[in-house]
């Protein structure tokens, strides 16, 4: 067992875990933050994307102890209290989700895109930047629209 402590969604957490515990398992099984999902086992689908020290990363390809001391934000911690984050609101407004399974990872990836690429995002940029997130429902059309709108709303 190994001790890990980190800040998750603004709250300090400490636990003893098997070194094999992936960050996504730690979030889902130990902290019961089940909004972060697992959609593949080859680090491709992006359903597990969270922010670690402000950067989007795949929580399925990282041991919990690698995030020791880090500041982790999951989909549950994105909104400020009851008010939705503008990107969450944009996904709802533009029908950027259907089954909802890829959605947390998509939204976390989208916020990261805005951080890196700014608030005025064209169609091509968004599509290229979504390389690490798979969706099987939407054909991406409305996800792209939602991200463009969410990015503007984050100004």
């Amino acid at each position: 067992m190994t001790a890990v402590s980190m800040t998750v969604n603004g709250k300090p957490v400490t636990a003893d875990v098997d070194p094999r515990t992936l960050l996504v398992q730690f979030l889902r099984e130990h902290l019961r933050l089940t909004g972060t999902h697992v959609g593949c086992d080859t680090s491709q689908c992006g359903a597990c994307v969270v922010h670690i020290d402000g950067k989007a990363m795949k929580s399925c390809t990282m041991f919990a102890w690698q995030a020791d001391g880090a500041n982790v934000t999951t989909i549950e911690g994105l909104a400020n209290g009851a008010a939705l984050h503008p990107m969450q609101e944009a996904f709802r407004e533009h029908h950027g989700l259907q089954c909802g399974y890829c959605t947390p990872g998509m939204i976390m990836a989208a916020v990261d895109i805005v951080k890196r690429k700014g608030h005025d995002l064209d169609d091509r940029t968004i599509r290229e930047e979504l390389d690490g997130n798979l969706c099987r429902c939407t054909g991406y059309h409305n996800i792209v629209k939602a991200i463009a709108a969410g990015a503007r709303a984050m100004k």
């Binding site: 933050l33 989909i75 549950e76 939705l84 969450q88 989700l97 909802g100 959605t103 939204i107």
Partner: peptide, 9 residues
Amino acid sequence: DHRFITGKG
């Protein structure tokens, strides 16, 4: 949508 975009699905 509210539950899905907030991770509460």
